[in-house]
Design a protein around this nucleic acid. Structure first.
Length: 344
DNA sequence: ATAAATGATTTCGC
DNA sequence: GCGAAATCATTTAT
């Protein structure tokens, strides 16, 4: 790998006979005026062009300048342009427009939905609202945890934005750098604006793929945050005793059909100061757990049955007679009746 | 420390 | 979209 350049370099050295500054060399050629000398001249120039990249920076710079000033330069340049024209035509086929990436769209949408890429402060509350909606309730007790969540989300958003900006800046910097480079090079070799465009497009594609990675990891971070915090809904609290009693009361007094209507759920929710979904959850859990082990709930069932029975008698007897003989039998009977009927 | 209870979530069929 | 069932993650009881 080291061998080739050195070889070429030495070649160039030989061809150049010491290191005459190009102008003097030229003068010699012009003075000579015979065809042989001119051929030699062109050969030298081509050789120099071919080996220009093998030279040290200063050397190359000097030589480049010399070449630029060479009287043959326009002619050579035209030839190069011509050749390029032909080859470029064959290359041109490889230009496919990528459609807007579905994956990228998904990421963008999610980031927007989570309020990471959206507007500044409104995004946070939007995400919070979305989160609350997704959780299906529990809108009561979450100010502390919620602000914590929001703070973390803001942190993510901040990192995301600074990173994005950094990439953007780096991309722009790099692009202008490359463009300048190409523009500068276009003085010595033919570069069409189209090519520069293409180059810029390539650069942008590369950088946007990096951005996509950033978006991906940001999405991941948000997901983790969500599962950590909004699942902090799992940091549940048991309902207070009163609420549980109200719910149990309804359950056991509707044991034949323990499916409260939407209205009933709302009513229960209000009475227990919990959400409707929590009521639904409670009944779902209760039904399945009751069914799974009726025996275990027998006592509880009797108790609530007795209570409702007492209430009923109290109401019917207009509160005059303290009727407390607690006869749960009817309730129990009702209950077992429903069990046997295969309601469960 | 471990088991039981419990509210919430997920999965699946309708 | 609802409910059954399984499961998770926590709280409460032992």
């Amino acid at each position: 790998m080291d061998e080739q350049p050195r070889l070429m370099h030495s070649h160039a050295g030989v061809g150049m006979a010491g290191h005459p500054g190009l102008p003097q060399h030229m003068q010699e050629g012009t003075g000579g005026a015979d065809g042989d000398g001119r051929k030699q001249d062109i050969g030298d120039i081509l050789q120099q062009i071919m080996t220009i990249t093998d030279q040290s920076l200063d050397e190359a710079q000097a030589r480049k300048h010399a070449l630029n000033c060479h009287r043959m330069k326009p002619a050579l340049f035209n030839v190069l342009c011509e050749i390029k024209e032909k080859t470029v035509l064959s290359i041109r086929g490889a230009q496919e427009e990528e459609p807007p990436d579905a994956q990228l769209m998904r990421l963008d949408n999610m980031l927007l939905a989570e309020g990471v890429s959206g507007p500044e402060k409104g995004g946070g509350s939007a995400a919070a609202a979305a989160a609350a909606a997704a959780s299906g309730g529990a809108g009561a007790d979450n100010s502390a945890e919620h602000s914590d969540y929001r703070a973390k989300l803001a942190q993510i958003r901040q990192i995301y934005h600074t990173e994005l900006e950094k990439y953007e800046q780096a991309c722009n910097e790099f692009t202008t750098h490359v463009m300048n480079l190409l523009r500068e090079q276009s003085r010595t070799r033919p570069i069409s604006p189209k090519e520069i465009e293409r180059m810029v497009a390539i650069i942008h594609r590369k950088f946007s793929s990096i951005q996509m990675q950033l978006k991906q990891s940001t999405c991941e971070a948000v997901m983790i945050l969500r599962s950590r915090f909004l699942d902090a809904r799992r940091k549940r609290r048991n309902f207070n005793k009163q609420a549980t009693e109200i719910l149990n009361e309804y359950f056991y007094s509707h044991l034949s059909n323990p499916y409260p209507s939407e209205e009933a759920k709302e009513e229960l929710a209000k009475k227990c100061s919990i959400t409707v979904s929590q009521v639904s959850n409670w009944f779902g859990n209760k039904r399945i757990r009751y069914k799974k082990n009726i025996g275990k709930f027998q006592e509880e069932a009797n108790m609530y049955a007795a209570r409702t029975a007492v209430n009923a008698t109290n109401v019917s007897s207009h509160g005059s007679q303290a009727n407390s003989p607690s006869t749960p039998n009817s309730a129990v009977l009702k209950m077992s009746h429903f069990h046997k009927n295969g309601i469960f």
